[in-house]
Simulated assay, not measured.
Amino acid sequence: MTTKKDVLLATLANQPTDQILAGFWHHYLADTKQQVFGYRNLDSIQKVVTLQQQFFDQYQPDYTKIMSDNFFLLPSLLDLPLQQVTDLNHIEPVAPTDRWFQRQIEALKKIVAHYGNVIGSFYNIFSPWYQLRLRFEIIDGDDQKIYRFLKAESELFGRTLDRLADDLSELVTRLIDQTGILGIYLCVQQPQDPTVDLALWQQYVVPSEMKLLRAAQTANDGNILHICGFAGAHNYLADYRGYPFKAVNFATYVAHVTLAEGKQLFGGRTVLGGFDNTEQGVFYRGTRAEIVAETQRLLSKNGRQGILLGADCSVPFDQDDRHGQWVSQAANS
């Protein structure tokens, strides 16, 4: 019998299928500090494992991204002061035996095993740039530090991201090899400061993201690039055409690029998305009839081959998760 996981693999390979898959997700921990430090608390880890298992049981997604709640950031970024750019020299590699690795592997094994090989899943990973930016925002409360550091000591900044990519490559290789996920869902985003020349991003940020994606693709050719447009962040999608990935998720409503246009832009690779992820979007606020109509409109406009329905990014915490079932049913009725 053909499973949704089989259909997912065919869709990722850009093959025609008899079924269109839909998947939507949201975080489970509202406290951002808990997102970062929760890996030190076994109860918090188990809470998220249970919630993600319950989500599958209740709403039967066609495929899913498993959230990295409790494990947002590398532990090497957490307990040292990063007040000036030269402090980046103090970031040490994460030991392969660190509990951050092992507890993450164990948590994912429980979640994926619960799916019973019925659906395929991906795991949320923040890129080295994204990791450092979240460290500065969540722990230091300074959303401009990432740009100051990049401009002040670009070479040191680039070397730091490369070191972080090594640790993340170790993580994703072990996760893909040991837990049953198909691959990672790598979150990337270009600098959102107009004073930062994108040439700096290209020279000092891109290599670490490419390194991480190559490691993931080597472990299994089934990884998704998420070009994050959360809260209206703008990215130049064409700048990512050379990245190695199997499928791409971008913010159609922020970039004003349709799934069909994105598919052409990225050389025919599979695209994921179509729905606005905000509280203003039809997926969040719409009636069943409105969501059905939007699903049919998206497929009529963008075609059905190499298309995974989803949202621009994570949906709100209080999202009615039945809406994902409505999309799936409408796509296949």
Rank of each mutant, 00 (worst) to 15 (best):
A13E: 13
Q15P: 05
P16S: 07
P16K: 03
D18E: 15
D18P: 06
F24I: 05
H26P: 00
Y28C: 12
D31Q: 08
Q34W: 12
Y39M: 06
Y39L: 02
D43I: 09
I45K: 01
Q46C: 11
Q52C: 10
Q53Y: 12
Q54W: 10
F55E: 13
Q58C: 12
Q60G: 01
Q60V: 07
K65N: 13
D69N: 02
D69M: 01
F71D: 00
L73F: 10
L74R: 04
L77Q: 11
L78H: 14
L80W: 07
T86V: 13
I91Y: 10
A95K: 14
T97V: 10
F101M: 01
Q104C: 03
K110E: 15
V112C: 10
H114R: 15
Y115A: 08
I119T: 08
S127M: 04
P128R: 03
Q131C: 09
R133V: 10
L134V: 06
L134Q: 13
F136I: 13
D140Q: 14
D142W: 12
Q144E: 07
K145A: 15
I146G: 05
I146D: 04
Y147W: 12
K151N: 13
E155D: 14
T160M: 11
L164H: 08
D166H: 11
R174K: 14
I176P: 03
Q178R: 15
L182S: 04
C187K: 05
Q190I: 00
D197A: 13
D197W: 03
L200K: 03
W201Q: 07
Q202N: 09
Q203Y: 09
Y204W: 12
V205G: 05
L212N: 01
A216E: 08
Q217I: 13
N220K: 02
I224T: 01
L225W: 09
G229H: 00
G232C: 08
A233M: 09
L237S: 01
N249Q: 15
F250I: 03
V254A: 07
A255Q: 08
H256M: 05
G268P: 02
L272S: 06
D276F: 00
F283A: 09
F283M: 14
Y284D: 00
I291T: 09
I291L: 14
I291G: 11
T295A: 00
L299S: 12
G303S: 10
G303I: 07
Q305C: 13
G306F: 02
A311Q: 06
S314K: 05
F317R: 01
W326I: 09
N332T: 13
